[in-house]
């Protein structure tokens, strides 16, 4: 048990150090920041999909509401950025709570319903009728709060927190119960696991992570339109990175994010359709030939994947 704790601590420290030191070696801080965003988001997807089997196509809704929540708290109530970030996370958790009845639906219904929910939130936030509150389609400007360095390090902290949460879940009774529920919800309930409550809890943790990340993204970017933080592609990236690396593990989604997001930046930014084509094909091939992701290749050879 003690040795496991050490391993966990080392993993968190390595991740933190990697992103603290990376700007010294590589000058594109924006790319590093966005890589952290996607690692954290794919871990958020991982908590839900990897441990409960629920696939949140609409995950971006939490990211977007976190970005908007944090921004509006800064703009309307003059909250300092870090406090506003926490506020954005809290609002995302609240949205998760409001949407938690969706978790009564079975897999495919849930996936599509969550997609519909995120679109609904986007259409509400970006609606011209709410221009006085959300600035509608005209987007957010946080110029006076712009602080790329501090927001970068705050993102490192959020990432570390996310990694720690995933590690905790993997090790804990809660995590085992989630996996049991994913394998068979009826058996889990008969084993005494309060299935809906546990699932809701995982959903809200997952929502909170996306909300915090969204807030950090808003702060770092400081000028953005609603479609930038509600774009379905954000959900898609997080899901593909998770599936590629291997859901249910810590390192899988991390690996997936670093490799695929790196790839996206070399080929995708100017012609995103090529990348879309590649990951579309990747999804099809993964599902047909490697449903448990890259991590399962190692597992097949007998290694334990953290």
């Amino acid at each position: 048990m003690l040795r496991r704790r050490w391993v966990d601590a080392v993993v968190v420290v390595v991740v933190v150090l990697a992103f603290v030191l990376a700007p010294q070696a590589y000058s594109n801080e924006t790319l590093l920041f966005q890589m952290m965003v996607y690692i954290a988001l794919s871990q958020g997807v991982n908590i839900l999909y990897g441990f409960t089997g629920y696939l949140p196509f609409g995950y971006v809704g939490f990211f977007g509401i976190g970005a908007y929540g944090a921004s509006l708290l800064m703009l309307h109530l003059n909250w300092p950025p870090i406090l506003a970030l926490l506020g954005g996370g809290a609002i995302a958790v609240l949205l998760g709570l409001v949407l938690s009845p969706l978790l009564r639906l079975s897999g495919a219904y849930f996936a599509i319903a969550s997609l519909a929910a995120s679109q609904a939130v986007y259409l509400i936030v970006s609606n011209p009728a709410l221009q006085n509150v959300t600035y509608g389609p005209y987007g957010i400007q946080l110029v006076s709060q712009f602080n790329p360095t501090l927001s970068y390090y705050v993102m490192v902290v959020i990432l570390a927190l996310t990694v720690a949460v995933v590690l905790y879940i993997r090790r804990s009774r809660f995590g085992t119960a989630l996996q049991a529920m994913r394998d068979d919800p009826v058996s889990a309930a008969m084993a005494g696991v309060p299935v809906v409550r546990q699932r809701t809890f995982a959903w809200m943790i997952s929502a909170g992570i996306a909300g915090l990340v969204g807030g950090a993204f808003a702060w770092q970017t400081s000028v953005f339109y609603p479609d930038a933080v509600f774009s379905l592609s954000i959900s898609i990236f997080a899901i593909v990175f998770t599936l590629f690396g291997g859901a249910g593990t810590l390192l899988g989604p991390l690996f997936g994010s670093v490799v695929l997001y790196g790839m996206y930046n070399t080929i995708g930014i100017s012609d995103p359709q090529y990348f879309q084509l590649i990951y579309g094909l990747l999804i099809i091939l993964l599902v047909l030939f490697l449903p448990d992701g890259a991590a399962s290749l190692l597992k097949r050879r007998g290694s334990h994947v953290l």
Binding site: Q273, L281, I283, I284
Partner: peptide, 12 residues
């Protein structure tokens, strides 16, 4: 997930 991948391919 598979049909979702297909949808991405078609869109691209």
């Amino acid at each position: 997930v598979l049909f979702f991948g297909l949808s991405q391919v078609i869109e691209a």
